[in-house]
């Protein structure tokens, strides 16, 4: 189930890394921002899935829209001479971190509850 998305990740990475030329260095910041936004969407989806309120449409639209918006925000920051790039990095970083923390907590609660259920069944 998880194998297909994982292999897609690797295939996408290798395909671009091996066969496409590097982007100009001044684009690198925007690509980095987009990657951060994508990771944020992915981690958010994981959390939502564990909380049983995962919605595919919201996930896919959020993934692409957030990527573009984050990169656009950084770009406009550059044009205005404001370091919005940093604001985006900080905001997304905090979100990713929070979501990962929530995910871990959900996993732990799930396992504790499972063990409790097992001991209850044994008694």
């Amino acid at each position: 189930m998880i194998a297909l998305p994982l292999s897609a990740l690797i295939v996408g990475f290798l395909a671009v890394y091996l066969f496409l030329p590097a982007v100009p260095p001044r684009w690198a910041d925007y690509v980095a921002i987009a990657i951060l936004a994508g990771l944020d969407a992915l981690v958010g989806a994981l959390r939502n899935w564990l909380e049983r309120r995962f919605d595919e449409a919201i996930f896919v639209s959020g993934f692409f829209a957030n990527m573009v918006l984050a990169a656009l925000l950084a770009y406009f920051g550059d044009k205005l001479g404001v370091d919005l790039y940093l604001a985006v990095v900080v905001a997304l970083g905090i979100r990713i971190f929070n979501n990962l923390g929530r995910t871990r907590a959900l996993f732990v609660t799930a396992r504790v509850e499972a063990r409790r259920a097992r001991t209850a069944a044994a008694q």
């Binding site: 998305p5 994982l6 897609a8 990740l9 690797i10 295939v11 996408g12 990475f13 290798l14 395909a15 671009v16 890394y17 091996l18 496409l20 590097a22 982007v23 690198a28 690509v31 980095a32 987009a34 990657i35 994508g38 990771l39 969407a41 992915l42 996930f59 896919v60 993934f63 692409f64 990527m67």
Partner: peptide, 12 residues
Amino acid sequence: VCLVLGGLLGVQ
């Protein structure tokens, strides 16, 4: 989504 993300990582 993972394909796109992988591609972006590759570029970066």
